[in-house]
């Protein structure tokens, strides 16, 4: 056999050496983790999607939600986005949807935060429920795609939040517990009986109790009256100075349609694009429930918007005529909300 020329030999040694090093680096950083990094599934990670939710996940992937929404919480996110994620939460998450840019909020714990009808309205026209959002409208999705997508969104972080709420350690996960599938984890998503029960037991609050409403009055006076006025007519001392949208006048008939859950959600989330803050950031759930109880006692039988700026007079609070309550719950507000959004979907910013 003829020996190779010296020059080629030199190249060969260098080339083989470099190729080996390079392949080792690739192996260690891209292939090896797949064999050594096998976290045990947490309860959230062991969740098995139903056919509907799995299809919803495909819609999420197809419509590129991942380019603006991440699916992992970080220690530095002071914006409350829920419980911290763990490696075991992602065992069944293939393809991964971690995301790399956030133009919208993190979605790892979105499940159960909003009612389905809210999601529906939000996807039809995001600016109908979140003024200032730059999310595209997904009104082109078919009914099935939209339903499935929302079903998928409602699974995100649900198990994790549920565990945290119950104070259970996320260990010894043993597959998916069917009983939890039905159990809603936030106050908003719960059916009425459960909500009443939670209101009484979990938060020790019965929003229909007049003593509770009395407790809420103090919270209202300290936090809300400055804009909404002591009688809730939206004519508090600073209402005149607020640019843009004016504080709500709770005596308008539309507020008769507010269910407890809607009151609670409004107080909790605030009104984006206005000066109405998110009270969940400064009030506890219990305090917000007190506030809801008080709001339900405000007079809601007038349709005469007040043009006069109120001179705060705390003695008015003792006038029983002013605080005649209206406890009607017409209900169906979620549906009204969705219908409104669908109707005005082309309307741009509200």
């Amino acid at each position: 056999m003829q020996p190779m020329p010296h020059r080629i030999q030199n190249y060969l040694i260098a080339a083989v050496f470099v190729v080996l090093i390079f392949l080792t680096i690739i192996f260690v950083t891209a292939i090896l983790p797949a064999t050594t990094f096998q976290p045990e599934a947490t309860v959230q990670g062991a969740y098995v999607y139903t056919a509907q939710e799995a299809h919803g996940r495909e819609v999420y992937l197809r419509e590129g939600c991942v380019y603006c929404h991440s699916q992992f919480t970080r220690y530095q996110d002071r914006e409350p986005s829920g419980e911290m994620v763990e490696a075991g939460d992602y065992v069944n998450q293939t393809p991964h949807l971690l995301g790399t840019e956030r133009t919208g909020p993190d979605l790892s714990n979105i499940g159960g935060k909003y009612p389905d009808a809210w999601h529906w309205a939000h996807h039809m026209q995001p600016r109908a429920v979140k003024p200032g959002s730059v999310m595209p409208s997904f009104s082109y999705l078919s009914h099935k795609d939209m339903t499935d997508l929302i079903a998928y969104l409602q699974t995100l972080g649900r198990e994790r939040e549920l565990l945290a709420r119950r104070g259970v350690k996320a260990e010894g996960a043993s597959g998916h517990d069917a009983a939890w599938e039905k159990e809603p984890i936030t106050w908003i998503e719960a059916p009425q009986e459960m909500r009443d029960q939670w209101a009484r037991i979990a938060h020790n609050v019965d929003v229909n109790n007049s003593a509770v409403a009395n407790s809420g009055r103090g919270i209202f006076m300290q936090n809300c009256a400055v804009c909404h006025g002591v009688t809730g007519r939206g004519n508090g001392p600073v209402s005149d100075a607020i640019a843009g949208k004016k504080p709500a006048n709770f005596t308008r008939p539309m507020f008769r349609a507010y269910k407890d859950s809607m009151w609670f959600w409004r107080v909790k989330e605030g009104v984006p694009g206005t000066r109405m803050p998110r009270w969940e950031r400064s009030l506890s759930e219990q305090q917000m429930a007190y506030l809801v109880a008080f709001l339900k006692t405000l007079p809601m039988d007038e349709d005469t918007p007040s043009s006069k700026i109120e001179v705060t007079n705390y003695s008015q609070l003792d006038n029983p005529e002013l605080l005649k309550g209206n406890y009607d719950e017409i209900g169906q507000l979620d549906e009204l909300h969705a219908e409104h959004a669908a109707r005005y979907q082309g309307g741009g910013r509200h």
Binding site: I26, T29, A30, I31, P33, A34, F37, P39, G45, A87, Y90, V91, N92, Q93, T94, P95, H96, L98
Partner: peptide
């Protein structure tokens, strides 16, 4: 090449 879970993210970002 297919991996599951977070390993999918690792090879994806590779």
């Amino acid at each position: 090449v297919q991996f599951t879970g977070l390993n999918d993210a690792i090879s994806g970002w590779f």
